[in-house]
């Protein structure tokens, strides 16, 4: 069915036929959309329906709204989920700050400052993008263990202040290079220091890229499972993702209502970013090939 019409803004076929084709594609896209969204909507509706109904129904509309799952989920573990949300928020916000500050400092040096060996270090920085984290994982763990940082948020946050997420440096270098050089040349002629140029000229002109970096680092940190899994042991320090995992382990399938309620809640911040920053997210992906 697809062979003729897929790729056309077509003049050669009749209007009626083209309307038919367009209808066909809309139907197809809608079916795909529904299949894509169905699980998400089903989870949302499972979280607000009476628990007994969860498995008896494939429908998206609950027979009655029952929010008790949220309460059961919130208090379902020996530490309340509020604590996990707080921990996740703290780690994510600090990670955003770290990434934005440290990566923009490095990016400014690479994009604008002259220093011996700049191209060499730039190449090295790009090289670190290729290294899978597994290679540094174990020695890093040993290092943080020796520092007494295991079971604190430090191993999850401090690396961000050391610009370990080189991807953001790359992203910012690209952006900084697009800012007209005349601006900082002029400032330098007037005796502006490198620091003031960075702070008063580059950063204010770079809000789009800083926002993109901030949003992606928030989302990646919020969703991160592996880091917290390794470094956080005490339940009081758990992030939301770890809390969900404990919930799965402790309740088996007996408490699906609470589990779905907390799962839904854990997606709310991500969904919020999706709603309000969609344009930045999509541009970020389209122009740089960011994953996700």
């Amino acid at each position: 069915m697809t062979s003729l019409a897929i790729f056309s803004k077509d003049d050669s076929i009749s209007p009626r036929r083209s309307r038919f084709v367009s209808l066909l594609f809309h139907t197809l896209l809608m079916v795909v959309s529904i299949i894509m969204l169905y699980p998400l909507l089903w989870m949302l509706s499972a979280s607000i329906r009476p628990e007994a109904e969860i498995f008896s129904s494939t429908s998206l509309l609950p027979s009655a709204i029952d929010l008790s799952s949220y309460w059961k989920g919130w208090t379902g573990l020996r530490v309340e989920f509020g604590q996990f949300f707080w921990n996740s928020l703290v780690i994510s916000v600090l990670s955003v700050a770290g990434n934005v500050i440290a990566c923009s400092l490095a990016a400014y040096a690479f994009a604008r400052l002259k220093f011996a060996g700049r191209n060499f270090w730039f190449a090295i920085m790009l090289g670190t993008l290729m290294i899978p984290y597994h290679v540094t994982l174990i020695p890093q763990y040993v290092l943080f263990l020796k520092l007494g940082w295991v079971d604190t948020i430090l191993p999850l946050v401090v690396p961000k202040f050391l610009a370990v997420d080189a991807f953001f440096i790359f992203l910012m270098v690209q952006f900084f290079r697009g800012i007209p050089r005349e601006l900082d040349e002029a400032a330098r002629m007037d005796g502006c220091s490198a620091w003031r140029i960075y702070w008063k000229i580059m950063l204010p002109l770079s809000t789009p890229v800083l926002a993109t970096a901030a949003i992606f680092s928030f989302l990646w940190t919020w969703d991160d499972f592996f880091g917290p899994l390794i470094y956080l042991n005490d339940m009081n320090n758990y992030t939301v993702q770890l809390g969900l995992r404990s919930f799965v382990d402790s309740s088996g399938s007996s408490q699906w209502g609470g589990l779905f309620a907390m799962s839904t809640l854990s997606l709310v911040p991500v969904f919020f970013f999706f709603l309000f920053f969609q344009r930045l997210l999509i541009e970020g992906i389209a122009t740089t090939g960011l994953k996700r």
Binding site: L105, F115, P139
Partner: peptide, 28 residues
């Protein structure tokens, strides 16, 4: 005077690179 500011701005990255990437990679 030539390279100083550049290296100052890169300082966090250098610490991260040697302390958390290159060093651990060699140790690993």
């Amino acid at each position: 005077q030539g390279s100083g500011p550049g290296y100052m701005f890169l300082l966090p990255w250098f610490i991260g690179f040697f302390g958390l990437t290159l060093g651990p990679a060699i140790v690993s």
